Amino acid sequence: MKNYSILEMKSFGLAAILTLICALIGTFMAGLPYLSLIGALVISLIMGMVFQVFKTPVENAKIGIGFISNKFLRLGIILLGFKLNLIDLARAGVKTILLAVVVVTGTIILTYTISRKLHVEKELAILAAGGTGICGAAAVMGISPQIKVPEEQAEHQHENEVLAVAIVAILGTVFTLVDIGIKPLLHLTPTQFGVMTGASLHEIAHAVAAGSAGGPVSLDASIITKLSRVLMLAPASLIIGAWYQRSNAKETGNTEKAKLPIPWFMAGFIIASVIGTFLPLGASLLALLVKAAYLFLGMAMAALGMSVNFKVIFQRGKNVFLAAIISSIILLLFSILVVKLFF
């Protein structure tokens, strides 16, 4: 037992070093021109996949990689709550919050429905829908713990996570360029353009990149609208977990009343947003906590990248990618219509 404990500690230490390197590379590269569209989390994931070429270190770090991909993910999402200023969201008004609720609910349902019509497996369809509807990679990783699968399907579920993250990263980048490209054709005010980008794009990085093309007013509107969607992550995770459990019970004929899955780390996410909003922590400390959030999330993403067979991902991603494209187009058109009518 003692030897196993030492091996476990060594594995965790090695995994921490490897994933930290990937996360730091992701953070650095995300600050470079053009790569900022991809974002630090996705770059960290890609670096983790690249690190699979170092077979011996990755294999020796396998136990630690599993721990980091699970626990650091939750810690990162909790700390991400400090990015949400609830007063700023309240000032954005009922229209913005209502738009976020409609966008998140509608996009998740639409993406999931189209995916299932295209014969995409349930678990992958849920993750792709959550990432498209809420906030990209962070939403995929936040919802995934609610999708309880048997131990023998854990590796397959990791592949689903990577595939869903890849889809929202690619589509978010493409639609960021589309939003910027069609901006002169839409004749929107800076506020309207900002709300449109925040409502329609996938990652926070995408909303920032596109919103900044419309100037400071547009950027502020884009960030507030996008963060309104991020706020939906906690309730969406709870609802999706409960629905998935009930759906599986019906399919298997299991009539026993199962325990409702409560994403406790999401409660930490909300508490962090309350603390960051109402306690005088200072802008520098809040910025540091948000950086720590992205660092831990980057390490979790890198660990995920190290633990999957990514060749398989590209072999079975065609239909879910098509579903996400269709729903992203509908989301963009809906966002344009809404800002024209109500903002």
Rank of each mutant, 00 (worst) to 15 (best):
M1R: 15
M1V: 14
K2T: 15
N3F: 07
N3W: 14
Y4E: 15
S5Q: 12
S5Y: 13
L7N: 12
L7T: 08
L7F: 10
M9T: 12
M9C: 07
K10N: 15
F12R: 08
G13N: 15
L14N: 02
L14E: 08
L14G: 08
A16S: 10
A16D: 03
I17V: 15
I17Y: 06
L18R: 00
T19K: 10
T19F: 03
L20A: 15
L20D: 00
I21K: 05
C22V: 00
A23Q: 08
A23E: 02
L24Y: 07
I25E: 05
T27W: 07
M29H: 03
G31Q: 08
G31L: 03
Y34T: 08
L35I: 05
L35R: 11
S36N: 09
S36A: 07
S36T: 11
L37A: 09
L37T: 05
I38K: 02
G39C: 01
G39S: 05
G39W: 04
A40E: 09
L41C: 01
V42K: 07
V42I: 06
L45T: 10
I46N: 00
I46T: 04
M49H: 01
M49D: 00
V50Q: 08
V50G: 01
V50W: 06
F51K: 13
Q52D: 02
V53N: 05
K55Q: 14
T56L: 11
P57I: 02
E59V: 00
N60R: 12
N60P: 03
N60V: 04
A61Q: 11
A61G: 12
